[in-house]
Write a protein that binds this DNA or RNA. Sequence first.
DNA 1: CCACCGCCGTGTTACGTATAACGTCCGGGG
DNA 2: CCCCGGACGTTATACGTAACACGGCGGTGG
Lengths: 356, 356
Amino acid sequence: MHSPDTPQAHPGARPAARTAGRGTAARVTSRDVARAAGVSQATVSLVLGGKWRGRVSEPTVRAVREAARALDYRPNLAARSLRLGATRTAMLVVPALTHEYFARVYTGAAQVAARHGFGVVLYPSPAGIGPARDPFGSARTAIDGVIASSMAADALTAIGDGGLPLVMLDSDPGTPKGPPTVNLAVADGIRQVARHLLGLGHRRIAHIAADVDTWTFRARARAVEEALAAAGLPAAPRHPCALDVGAAKDAAVAALTAPGPRPTALLCDDDILAAGACKGVRSLGLAVPGDVSVTGFDDLSLAAALDPELTTVRLPAEAIGEHGMRALLRLLDGEDAPAVELPLTLVPRGSTAPPR
Amino acid sequence: MHSPDTPQAHPGARPAARTAGRGTAARVTSRDVARAAGVSQATVSLVLGGKWRGRVSEPTVRAVREAARALDYRPNLAARSLRLGATRTAMLVVPALTHEYFARVYTGAAQVAARHGFGVVLYPSPAGIGPARDPFGSARTAIDGVIASSMAADALTAIGDGGLPLVMLDSDPGTPKGPPTVNLAVADGIRQVARHLLGLGHRRIAHIAADVDTWTFRARARAVEEALAAAGLPAAPRHPCALDVGAAKDAAVAALTAPGPRPTALLCDDDILAAGACKGVRSLGLAVPGDVSVTGFDDLSLAAALDPELTTVRLPAEAIGEHGMRALLRLLDGEDAPAVELPLTLVPRGSTAPPR
DNA sequence: CCACCGCCGTGTTACGTATAACGTCCGGGG
DNA sequence: CCCCGGACGTTATACGTAACACGGCGGTGG
């Protein structure tokens, strides 16, 4: 119906027909500004670069600035990058932008970046990591550093940082001399959830676990064990499942119909699983939170859209992105960045109640 | 013979001050490749640029390619952009990346872009549109074109396209000689929802409307009127509200407690409103869909996470991004792009049933 | 034997910027 | 009187790539 697109980039691309049809965006260069201001191009560069103290008189500075504004001068970023050998651009690697968490991480990183004159680009095709030897492709020459989120350590080396400054988010901080990390206090978050449930009187808690091998989910699983052990309770039965609503529903049903006394609470590894768990509870004719309490993790917008609203843990996703970007900026300045761990906060809502 | 290696004394021999601790990523240039292959830099550029038909012999071509691969050569994008006057980068302007729809649009656009050697960057700070005269800032020199989604036409001019090629998504196609548009068949989508409800037997339908002044929501509102009128029914009472769960809940309560016979169905402008509407229904002690049917629009992942799952309309968000990118590519090739309208599909699920 | 042409490359230049190195003009100290 | 040095700019250069214009060279036709 619509035109199919060519599978490979055509080598004989057209000369792009500069300013085809559109308004002729007459590129104004620093030399044009210089001419207009009656000075040399070097002076324009000095003035607009801000390093003119003691080198250019104030009237001249004003003249240059005036001319630049009058001509609506924008420095050519490609030329600047070529000259400086730096692009003032960071690349953010995330598994999937459609997951709200990562979109928020991006937002935070971009905000801080913009404040420092940096841009943030996303890793091209999360799914299609090409031949191992060509990780970033030519993009490697177009970025100054990399921020990678929620990646297995080996997956990162598979991508290949290409010797670029690197910051890792939500990743294993274990490696002693590895890249700086910005992490969430996941264990503490889980502990808060557990204490909340225990405080309500729950003693039989099942764990709906995400079957995903990343640091954050491994940390969540371990934290659940530790939190219950600390309360002197037996280990919670663990029901691993894929990270989607349907799988979680099945896992919840399995948890609630397992032999032995029925759990009164389902502690879920994240909000999506919790949504599925709620459906599982109801599919058995039980009520949330009347018969079974359910908790989530992440505080996606989903959590407040469910009925009842999910008791969950808020992740400061934007802050993760912000700190990640700040760490990268420090790296680019030659300093080294300290590891960061951000605190989480429990958000008690309607999906939890004392057991009947 | 090779060119004599004249070791000219560089005036400013910079010892790579920046990369202090990190691995010094020895930049390999096309000239290095040329030396290794025993040819000139021009030949390397020709070969790697793909335009050597009849200009370079096949053995030489192989030698160059071999050398490039051996040295792991990556062309410097800044230099290429400077030379070509084009950056092979598009900018996508969206209101909020954290909205799943826009994240999916980005994904689609990026996919097509990558296939053509293009990159996609996001408009820096959606919230902070700075002084009107400096819309894209210097970024304007770093992009070849703009794809703008869901913007009021005037807001776009406020941003200022800066004379760059422009494609508009989900926007008013009204302007005769304006930019190419890629739109959704919103009216038809609403019609499908309305027919679905009417087919189930509903006759008293209230409209929970988003109080947002963009093309897509204006189109939805008008389509609701038309669809009911076409069925010979009186206009649906319209309850506008902000685009969040809480507001929608209140609006739903208002709709259901208004004087006169109670509506048996709530047609909502999008899934988020539908989620809120469901809560409103239940807050009155009524059931979905037993007492009141509820429909959404967008088919966010949220729709399948709710209980019951939402009857909604699936938007081909990725396809919107893909077509947007293709249209921009055509514009950059000097051709002009036809307006596109993508079809929507109803997704019947558990939130609708015949009225009691 | 020369003119001509196709093949296979090479020399050179320009893109726009940042900065090192180099004047130039003056007032003043020795 | 001479030279020094600060204030104020300018000239020149390099970043890495793409592409234009040119040029040997070997064969071929006249």
